[in-house]
């Protein structure tokens, strides 16, 4: 029985893991909200972790300063990467984020100051359960508000149809770069919390594979609503722990789940209830429409009508 050895310390660890993974996934969510495809968020979290770790270890900075510094570095990297890739084809832009991740890995590897292949160590333990969950709560609240803010609506307009968004006066390049950078900052913040708990950050944590991981978490949970990212980050961290999966098995599960989810539920597990729509009425309306369609199947269709 895998559940037999439940101990408080063990679950404390798992939940802290889940907490900062959910935070990094929230960063992924914010960057995706304007339609960017990113596998760079592990590298962003890594940039935050290295920055934060150096600040507390070598400069004796308190954790809040380290968090601020890490987020700032994430934001700067994010805005540069955002501007570089904003005018490119979606796939090429995605590849740019991949290239960025790999460059970051090489940089972390080759700078002795950052610890090289052994990673950054000697960082003080400053992250606690309550801190992680306080930050998670604050971020969820902030991003939830962001979603219905001026910028949030503009971001989603860019995601759905950049050309129409531009015609409606939205500066697509700026909105996409800015939201990408904000997401990168959130991910970097998660990274700062991570390194002050795990006490080590290694270059391979920044790579494409880890980045793909956060993309998966966000897409699985649902990339159209803030709860989706939290759900994805949480379940896919805690579930394999309960099931006691090896790393390879976990990835096999991830991959299979990802494929199935994107096909049967393209918006992810958690989907959005938009402003002014009450769930029940919408359901009833859809049901009615479906029934009507059945009844008058093959009925007159107007030219150009897309169904």
């Amino acid at each position: 029985m895998p559940l037999a050895d439940i101990s408080l310390a063990y679950w404390n660890t798992v939940l802290i893991f889940a907490g900062y993974i959910a935070i990094i996934t929230l960063g992924q969510y914010v960057s995706m909200s304007s339609g960017s495809l990113s596998v760079a968020h592990a590298a962003m979290a890594g940039a935050g972790a290295y920055t934060g770790g150096l600040l507390t270890r070598d400069f004796g900075a308190p954790l809040p300063i380290a968090m601020l510094g890490g987020a700032l570095v994430g934001f700067v990297f994010g805005i540069v990467l955002g501007f570089l890739s904003v005018r490119l084809h979606l796939l090429v832009a995605g590849l740019m984020t991949l290239a960025y991740s790999e460059v970051m890995v090489v940089v972390a590897f080759s700078l002795d100051y950052l610890g090289g292949a052994n990673g950054l160590t000697g960082v003080p333990a400053l992250t606690s359960f309550w801190l992680v969950y306080l930050m998670l709560a604050v971020l969820v609240l902030a991003i939830w508000r962001y979603d219905t803010s001026r910028l949030g609506y503009a971001a989603r307009a860019c995601r759905d149809d950049p050309r129409a968004a531009a015609a409606m006066g939205i500066n697509v390049a700026w909105v996409k770069s800015l939201t990408f950078a904000l997401g990168a900052a959130v991910a970097a913040l998660g990274g700062v919390l991570r390194i002050h708990y795990t006490l080590v950050e290694t270059p391979d944590g920044l790579g494409f594979y880890q980045g793909m991981n956060f993309l998966i978490l966000a897409v699985f949970g649902g990339s159209y609503v803030v709860w989706g990212a939290v759900f994805g980050g949480f379940t896919l961290t805690v579930l394999p722990e309960i099931l006691r999966f090896s790393a390879a098995d976990r990835y096999i599960l991830y991959g299979a789940v990802l494929t199935v989810i994107i096909i049967v539920r393209p918006q992810g597990v958690i989907t959005r209830v938009p402003l002014g729509a009450d769930g029940g009425a919408r359901w009833a309306w859809r049901l009615r429409k479906r029934l009507m369609a059945r009844l008058v199947a093959g009925g007159a269709k107007r030219p150009g009508e897309e169904r």
Binding site: L37, L91, G94, M212, L215, I216, V219, A248, D249, Y251, I252, Y254, G255, A256, V257, L258, T259, V260, I262, I263
Partner: peptide, 13 residues
């Protein structure tokens, strides 16, 4: 992209 990406992860692992 994501559907085949998922399969790719399954195959590698």
């Amino acid at each position: 992209f994501i559907a085949t990406g998922g399969l790719s992860i399954v195959m590698q692992n």
